[in-house]
Simulated scan of single mutants.
Amino acid sequence: MQPMAGQDLLHTQPRPMHWLATATALSAVVAAASFVQPPDATATTSHGVRAARPAAAPDPARVSFPVNCGPNRLDVVQKVPGDLDGDGTTETVAVVRCHSETGTPPSGVYVLAGPTDGKAAPRIVATLLAPARQLSVRKLTVGNGVISAGLLGYSTLDVPRCCPDVHKDVKWQWKGGKFVQSELPAAMGTQRA
Rank of each mutant, 00 (worst) to 15 (best):
M1K: 13
Q2G: 08
P3R: 14
G6W: 02
Q7Y: 03
Q7A: 14
L9S: 04
L10K: 15
H11P: 07
H11F: 10
H11E: 07
T12Q: 08
T12E: 04
M17I: 07
M17W: 11
H18K: 08
L20N: 05
L20E: 01
L20F: 09
A23M: 15
A23C: 11
T24H: 01
T24W: 06
A25H: 08
A25L: 06
L26Y: 10
S27Y: 00
S27Q: 11
V29Y: 03
A33E: 07
A33W: 03
F35I: 07
V36Q: 05
V36F: 07
P39N: 04
A41C: 14
A41S: 12
T42V: 15
A43M: 13
T44C: 08
T44P: 00
T44S: 14
T45C: 09
T45A: 12
G48S: 14
R50E: 15
A52Y: 02
R53H: 06
P54F: 00
A57Q: 01
A57K: 00
P60I: 00
A61M: 07
R62C: 06
R62Q: 06
F65W: 04
V67G: 02
V67Y: 01
N68D: 02
N68L: 10
G70S: 05
P71K: 02
P71T: 07
N72F: 15
N72P: 08
R73D: 04
R73K: 13
R73Q: 11
V77F: 06
Q78K: 15
K79Q: 14
V80K: 12
L84T: 05
D85Y: 03
D85M: 02
D85H: 02
G86H: 01
D87I: 03
T90V: 13
T90W: 00
E91F: 01
T92L: 03
V95E: 09
V96M: 07
R97K: 14
H99C: 01
H99D: 09
S100C: 06
S100M: 08
T102M: 14
G103W: 04
P106A: 12
P106V: 00
S107H: 14
G108A: 04
V109Q: 08
Y110N: 04
V111F: 07
V111H: 07
L112V: 07
A113R: 05
T116P: 14
T116K: 12
G118K: 01
A120T: 05
I124Q: 02
I124F: 11
V125G: 05
A126S: 12
L128K: 04
P131M: 04
A132P: 06
R133D: 12
R138C: 09
K139Q: 12
K139H: 07
N144D: 15
G145M: 00
G145R: 04
V146A: 01
V146G: 02
I147S: 03
G150I: 03
L151P: 03
L152M: 11
G153S: 01
L157C: 15
V159H: 05
P160T: 08
C162Y: 12
C162T: 12
C163N: 11
C163S: 11
D165I: 01
V166K: 12
D169G: 02
V170H: 08
V170Q: 07
K171G: 04
K171Y: 08
Q173C: 01
Q173T: 06
W174V: 05
W174Y: 11
W174A: 11
K175I: 15
K175H: 09
K175D: 15
K178Y: 06
S182K: 03
L184V: 00
P185E: 10
A187V: 09
A187Y: 14
T190S: 05
T190F: 01
T190D: 02
Q191G: 13
R192G: 09
A193P: 14
